[in-house]
């Protein structure tokens, strides 16, 4: 397990998982689930940079996710912007929003930051729900199929590889970021903001950069989901989705890129597995979440890694 610690170890692990899984997949359904895991994991990696490295909680990240998703729906349908350009615009506007609200919001600490981001996410969701002439309202709107170089991108298998590619690049960028001077500054800031400030780190600027980056991750993931599903609904930007993303981060392990993938995988596949319990589905989901967090309190990946390392020593 020690190799999972290094940057390339993590990337290797992701690559192996992505390449091996299709061998075992009996049907398109599995490809769909895996694709959903990759998409969620991408958003979760971004959020993990913010939560795990900069120590800032966002309860409104689904707002950025929704902006990316709706960009590829609204852009081509209402504004005549090509899909890929729409996705880029979506990512850019999510980043811009994060930049604009980031300054005042990130001055807040802890739970105050949580409620401010929550408010921001709810505002985005509310606009998507209410402006029905643009967004189709609560029932959502269709997204036309992506055509690249005259070639229709269709079906879970193709999307499996595309989203896996995005996940891999996203993980690679995140790992590089963590290793960079910015990453080191962030970790200092996570341990103690005051100490970091005294140490000469421009705390506000660093937090803002990570906030913008995490917003862009979420928006790109949102665009991917919208293309993949062929439909967007305001749920993608909703409060419950924000909570889900945060849960994935904490479940997998804050500050662990591999943990982001594991957290996303657990929370996407668990409800599928729990359907056998029928009426007891939600009860079991809540129970599992509590048990995971009580026994693996620092998240699945960091806790298990330490236990295995401990046994080896």
């Amino acid at each position: 397990m020690a190799f999972l610690k290094g940057k390339y170890g993590v990337l290797l692990a992701i690559a192996i998982i992505v390449l091996i899984l299709p061998v075992a997949f009996p049907s398109n359904y599995y490809f769909r689930i895996a694709t959903l895991v990759w998409i969620s994991a991408l958003a979760v990696i971004g959020l993990n940079l913010l939560m795990g490295y900069a120590g800032q909680v966002s309860l409104g990240h689904a707002g950025f996710f929704g902006m990316g998703a709706y960009a590829v729906a609204v852009g081509p349908t209402h504004l005549g912007i090509p899909p890929v350009a729409s996705a880029l615009l979506g990512a850019a506007s999510a980043g811009l929003l994060a930049f604009v609200v980031g300054r005042p919001i990130l001055k807040l600490r802890g739970h105050y930051l949580a409620v401010a981001t929550l408010g921001m996410g709810i505002l985005v969701a509310m606009v998507l729900n209410n402006e029905a002439q643009w967004t189709g309202g609560p029932d959502g709107m269709p997204v036309s199929r992506l055509v690249l170089f005259g070639f229709k991108v269709k079906g879970p298998v193709m999307w499996y590889w595309i989203t896996a590619g995005f996940l891999f690049v996203g993980a690679w960028l995140a790992l590089n970021l963590v290793d960079s001077p910015l990453g080191r500054a962030l970790r200092a800031l996570h341990d103690s903001e005051t100490a970091a400030r005294v140490g000469g780190i421009d705390v506000a600027r660093h937090k803002l950069i990570v906030f913008v980056i995490s917003a862009v991750y979420a928006a790109v993931a949102g665009s991917l989901l919208a293309f993949f599903d062929g439909l967007v609904t305001p749920n993608t930007a909703g409060f419950l989705h924000s909570i889900q993303l945060v849960t994935m981060v904490v479940l997998g392990g804050m500050g662990s890129i591999l943990g982001s993938l594991v957290g996303a995988a657990v929370l996407v596949t668990l409800p599928q597995a729990l359907t056998v319990f029928h009426d007891y589905e939600h009860l079991m989901l809540g129970l599992m979440m509590m048990l995971f967090m009580i026994f693996l309190r620092r998240g699945i990946v960091p806790t298990l890694r330490d236990r295995i390392a401990g046994r080896v020593q």
Partner: peptide, 30 residues
């Protein structure tokens, strides 16, 4: 809607149903 699409795929690919009666809301149906 996203859940609905996943379960729809599951009905087709895994359960191999021959017909579907369902879709409570317009969003999930679409």
């Amino acid at each position: 809607a996203n859940n609905a699409k996943t379960f729809a795929t599951r009905l087709v690919e895994e359960d191999k149903v021959v017909a579907i009666v369902g879709g409570s809301t317009t969003g999930t149906t679409m």
